[in-house]
Design a binder for these strands. Structure first.
Lengths: 222, 222
DNA sequence: CTGACATCAAATGGATCCAATGCTCAAGAC
DNA sequence: GTCTTGAGCATTGGATCCATTTGATGTCAG
């Protein structure tokens, strides 16, 4: 129909893409209700593809649906956020180990490029986008869907809290992230899965501990 | 409408429940196509709730949907199955640690009862049902959805391969499972999270290694 | 006899209309 | 004055009908 942004041409895909962007970009806050009719009208589609899109996003860890009560943007409590990070500590080294042997030299070069850009920018949105790109690139060749899909879900559901967190701490201890990233890149270059996994786990764990020191990122409800 | 088996009364829930049972009970083989119209007619519903149900089951790791190509029962390759078990090794001790402090004495008693029944039966279907009940009971009080949901997904997507595997090995080394379960129960009774986690991880890991020795469980396609 | 293209059937995706459920607000009783 | 109850409305869930896409079969050319 509108070949303006042809995902697959499917309406439900278009709607899903739009909502996904809106949530990840922070335009929709956690817990915010998503009315089917509203979205449908806004995107010039029927309510049906919106319903399907909301289910897709639920699979991706971006929304939560309650029967007869509608959809909301995923919202995590402090305990849940902590657990999600513990899950990441245990799963992402596994994903990295799966992906690393297949990483090409050009991909590793790109990894270093992304890190350069992370260090060059002080903007929160830049950091969020580039940091996500950085880590997901290292998992690119992890082709086992259950693992890759779970990692994506964990990133998706915590995106908002990373944004708030980065805004809170500012660029104070940003150098730690850079150091961790560079150590990770080095280990990847050396194809040392053990080292890389350890740095990655430490990177996630340190972030988790920092997060736990900032309960204010949950706004009103702890 | 039909209050015969009122899940929530919602048609999509009814369809989802039916398909879930069919898949977990092994009536539908992995990779088998699920035609919307067929299921709709069979359950006396429209195709729409079937579509929604298929999406729900996708969230639960039971089906896979490809746009314009329909739905299939989830199918894992040998590599994927191995990875799923590695994920379980890392996540289930975490879930157990979350749940264990809240486990009541009566629940632990029930745990021992289930193990008794596992040891008393030689039937594969009994084992599958009871073993699932056993482990999921230990995770009952893990209320953080991302973790609990992921664990369920991992169990769901591997159910079929556990069935085939149990059929293949027979009751030869069944005593190992019993020993592991009893050690786990003991650790839980002592509220020793470290011990319990270690036994659990070992239990899953040993199963994974055994599985890797039986590539024939994948039937035609490795 | 083989391969490629066209046509047709079947299954999925989408839109509109209708039903049922949940929420809100106001009115009445204790 | 506050709690409860009922009616009205907003929103989600479901059914039927139509469009689009895919896969297969058959035919024609080489």
């Amino acid at each position: 129909m509108q070949p303006t942004d042809a995902d697959t041409g499917a309406a439900s895909q278009r709607v899903a893409t739009h909502l996904r962007r809106s949530i990840l970009d922070g335009l929709l806050a956690p817990g915010q209700r998503i009315r089917q009719e509203e979205v449908a009208e806004q995107l010039g589609a029927s309510r049906l593809p919106v319903r399907e899109a909301l289910r897709m996003l639920e699979s991706e860890g971006l929304t939560e649906l309650e029967p007869n009560k509608g959809a909301r943007v995923i919202r995590l409590g402090a305990r849940e956020l902590d657990i999600v990070y513990q899950m990441r500590e245990r799963l992402e080294p596994l994903a990295l180990g799966e992906s690393m042997p297949a990483l090409t030299d050009s991909e590793i070069t790109r990894l270093a490029e992304i890190e350069q850009r992370i260090e060059a920018s002080a903007d929160v949105e830049d950091f969020l986008r580039l940091d996500r790109e950085f880590h997901l690139l290292t998992y690119t060749h992890c082709r086992t869907e259950p693992l890759a899909g779970t990692v994506i879900r964990l990133w998706n559901s915590t995106q908002h809290y990373r944004r708030v967190f980065m805004g809170v701490i500012g660029s104070a201890q940003r150098w730690i992230v850079h150091a961790e990233h560079n150590l990770l890149i080095d280990a990847v270059q050396r194809r040392d899965a053990v080292d890389a996994g350890r740095y990655l786990e430490g990177h996630i764990r340190r972030t988790r501990v920092e997060l736990s020191r900032h309960p204010e990122i949950f706004g009103d409800r702890g």
